[in-house]
Design a protein around this nucleic acid. Structure first.
Length: 441
RNA sequence: GACCCUAUCGUCCAGCGGUUAGGACACCGCCCUUUCACGGCGGUAACACGGGUUCGAAUCCCGUUAGGGUCGCCA
């Protein structure tokens, strides 16, 4: 039997990281088993049904690299894939339950009568749990349809999972207590339930369920802040799971081969943005330059960095890739390489360039570099050190003023790498420009 | 309140009857170094509590406490 999993978000205009995680786990499970991953939009509340809300879901999943085999946008064998268009299907199942004597009316709404028998939930992550359904006070008969004819989540969710031939339902642990109710519907319909897997929740710093209000609870936050999807996926999998051997850095391909839903623990986990941040730096550092380029380009373009052509941009990206931690920092880290109109940070100028003798040392360095044959970072480094020795000063006495001269700041990419990217002409011109600054004595 | 889940450093994860309780993030030193990073070395820091079971419990059982979740005509 082909594995079929799904992600069934409500179009709220917000993709929660917890939602992204369930989507990721379902996607991984489907891909690991040669199965299908289905996207279904649960929009029984029509107010939510807007094009922008759909776009948020599509964009979020696409960004994470999660592709779906069936969905509202691409169709599929068991469509439509949005609940607002499936009412006739629900009517059919409702009639079946009615015929079985499982329904009754209550103030215009339709309720499902519980059998009041114990229900066993065999969960892929939580194990076997038996729910005693005998107390109507704690397990009231659930409403299935409102007086106005609209449908309630529990019912349509089960019907769709049946109709769409889902074999595995991996979802948040907040649904664990709802599962026996869902199983009762499967039983009333005479259908074998799918396998369930309830994954622990993501908590905020206060240990509460991560909500919209919490910073970093939306997947767009990670996108905008310059996180890479591979780092976010890596981090999300690490929450509650470990591949063993103290391994933590996993590429998306590693995740596909190693991640195992059955071995995640049952404990809710607090989201640690610091660790995600660290992982992001690791991924940035380890990925190919091509991938880095692909991810950084939108940020560079958005900031309006005048890099000219991709060929001119590439070397600049190459020298910041090992150092930058957020893609959103890239424009700031490379901007000065593409304009002679870069700003001088007053503090940086005061700390090195304005120091006595700095201008002279810069001149000496400029003279030495003007005749350097091989304009590579290695040769530049050798020449700078040679010059320092000749002047009888430490390399830092040349390095620091030179850094501020060419970049206007005290923090940035490697100095020799910056020189190399700038080229001799512009490097020396910037030395001269810096020496003519009013602050320089 | 009832029901369900959970309980190892501040945080995440290892540990599955015998360990000096390990790794990572964060934090603090030191080293490397052209800044910032990276990297290296070292440090602070945990088995919630109480009973069992056992020759022996972080590991198994029970209870307590704490946290989370569910109990909608939200999804």
């Amino acid at each position: 039997m082909t594995v079929r999993t799904r992600f069934a978000p409500s179009p709220t205009g917000f993709l929660h990281v917890g939602g992204a995680r369930t989507a990721l786990f379902n996607w991984l499970y489907a891909r690991q088993n040669g199965g299908k991953f289905i996207l279904r939009i649960e929009d029984t509340d029509e107010k939510r049904n807007t094009a922008e809300a759909y776009k948020v879901i599509y964009d979020g999943l696409n960004w994470m690299g999660l592709d779906w085999d069936e969905g509202p946008d691409i169709g599929g064998e068991y469509g439509p894939y949005q609940q607002s268009e499936r009412s006739s299907i629900y009517e059919k199942y409702l009639a079946q339950l009615e015929a079985g004597g499982h329904l009754y009316e209550d103030a215009g709404a339709i309720r499902f009568r519980s059998q009041r028998k114990p229900v066993l939930v065999e969960d892929m992550v939580c194990g076997s749990i038996t729910f005693d359904m005998s107390n109507p006070a704690t397990h009231p008969d659930m409403t299935i349809r409102r007086p106005d004819g609209s449908w309630i989540f529990h019912f349509v969710n089960v019907v769709d999972d049946i109709e769409m031939r889902l074999t595995h339902v991996l979802r948040g642990e907040d649904h664990l207590s709802n599962t026996p109710k869902h199983i009762e519907i499967y039983q009333a319909l005479g259908v074998t339930p799918p396998k369930f897997g309830h994954i622990p929740l993501i908590l905020n710093q206060e240990g509460k369920k991560l909500s919209k209000r919490d910073g970093g609870s939306s997947i767009t936050y990670f996108l905008d802040a310059g996180y890479t999807p591979e780092a976010v996926a890596n981090y999300l999998c690490l929450l509650g799971w470990s591949p063993g051997e103290n391994r933590e850095f996993l590429t998306s391909e590693d995740l596909l081969t190693h991640f195992d839903i059955a071995t995640i623990n049952r404990r809710n986990a607090i989201f640690d943005l610091d660790k995600c941040f660290w992982l992001n730096g690791q991924h940035l550092q380890h990925m190919t330059l091509e991938r880095f380029e692909e991810l950084a380009l939108p940020f560079v373009d958005k900031a309006g960095v005048p890099y000219g052509s991709p060929d001119a941009l590439r070397p600049a990206l190459a020298i910041v890739k090992p150092k930058v931690k957020h893609l959103s920092d890239v424009p700031d880290w490379i901007g000065f390489l593409f304009t002679e109109d870069y700003a001088f940070d007053p503090e940086a100028v005061a700390k090195s360039l304005a120091k006595p003798g700095a201008s002279d040392r810069l001149e000496a360095l400029g003279n030495a570099l003007s005749t350097l044959e091989d304009w590579t970072h290695a040769a530049i480094e050798a020449k700078l050190k040679e010059t320092a020795t000749a002047l009888g000063v430490k390399a830092g006495e040349l390095v620091h003023p030179a850094r501020v001269a060419v970049s206007g700041r005290s923090v940035g990419p490697g100095l020799y790498e910056m020189f190399e990217v700038l080229g001799r002409e512009r490097t020396l011109a910037r030395f001269a420009k810096a020496r003519s600054l009013p602050e320089i004595g």
